[in-house]
Design a protein around this nucleic acid. Sequence first.
DNA 1: GGCATGCTGACGGAAACTGTCAGCATGGAA
DNA 2: TTCCATGCTGACAGTTTCCGTCAGCATGCC
Lengths: 229, 229
Amino acid sequence: MSRAERLLDLMQLLRRHRQPVSGHALATELGVSLRTLYRDIATLQAQGAMIEGEPGVGYLLRAGFLLPPLMFTEEEVEALVLGSRWVVERGDSRLGGAARDALAKIAAVLPPDRREGLDGSALLVGPGEPIPVGDAELAAIRSAIRAERKLEISYRDRDGSESRRTVWPFALGFFDRVRVMVAWCELRQSFRHFRTDRILALTASEARYPRRRQAMLKEWRSAEGIPQR
Amino acid sequence: MSRAERLLDLMQLLRRHRQPVSGHALATELGVSLRTLYRDIATLQAQGAMIEGEPGVGYLLRAGFLLPPLMFTEEEVEALVLGSRWVVERGDSRLGGAARDALAKIAAVLPPDRREGLDGSALLVGPGEPIPVGDAELAAIRSAIRAERKLEISYRDRDGSESRRTVWPFALGFFDRVRVMVAWCELRQSFRHFRTDRILALTASEARYPRRRQAMLKEWRSAEGIPQR
DNA sequence: GGCATGCTGACGGAAACTGTCAGCATGGAA
DNA sequence: TTCCATGCTGACAGTTTCCGTCAGCATGCC
């Protein structure tokens, strides 16, 4: 049996056992040495499996690796599909792909009768005005926000004057016609909004910024008078 | 990328495409040769995945695969949250509530560390121009579509002339500034679009209409020159 | 301390993987 | 019919990965 097949088997094994299983037992069941089992576990963990190992106890697959069955009402399915269609239509292509993937995963764990609601949903998103972008840039911005890392951008402001700045991005706003990155600007020492279509160049920095993005978001919200939801 | 990882990716890729996909497309997406893709497909099939391949058509993953899908990635959660926020912002209130409920259910199955990404997501939906509505009407339209039931409406068309008609609604389009119900109009004997803000009154009928809404949607799509997705 | 277990590093032979090439099969389109 | 897109299989050789063995450390319980 090839390794790839064995890894799939291992997942099934862990899924079956609700009690902790010793590595030795797993190794035997898979017909493989203990050392190899440890390597397999490590590989699965590297792919995101939340497998917990405790000395003297054994291994246990924690919830959070495989998607359990989900139950949604028809209306909830409609809402998710409509929202995802909007993301596909208006988000960058990576995010659109993610939306499709998410729906596909949901479809896979939905009871069969609800599943058809996914493809056949009657709620459509009309095409909007094409948004000038920056597809790759949007993905870069999102990833910088997620990792709380600085960005260096060349920006042309409303008046046409260009500048180069280092910013701490913490939010991305999707409007009908434009997208706006919200960030702390090191140059101006204040919160600034940057229309993505005015960003001329963008470099992701290795450096993390010193504040938490959640905190900045909250602060920015109150500064702008936006309710905290 | 290791083979094991690639196999999981391949499963998700197949899940995502609900239509047949050519092996060549899959191989390209995975960054691997066509021959290797065939080998991967064979491996998955040997593991019990029901993947159908037809010459001249492509591959299709039948329901009943071997493993439930992996947990959502961060990007997928972002996409779902953004989409739901848009629905809350732009949908009718019932649908917005459903979007919230759906997110809550998703949150319940997320591993704890991922859960905070839900509320704290940095992707925001900008407020759009307020849409004149009809909140209750929208819910009524959606429900009529779902049940494939006729609606009687009073409508004021572009020219300002009013009419009363019975329609068979089968789709609802969300545009930036307006929402449009798509229906078969008994009066005109053709597909018609009705802006929801021009619907003066609306009565849900008990009577079901004689056609399937999926079929009408498909027919309307090709009549309008809209690709079938 | 003894024990069961988890976990890590190193090593060399064995096994699997991969791309290339070559060819066949099938079903729809021209 | 002839084409074409596609699925599918076999063979081969270079490369990569894998795997068992050994050796050792850590943790927590008795």
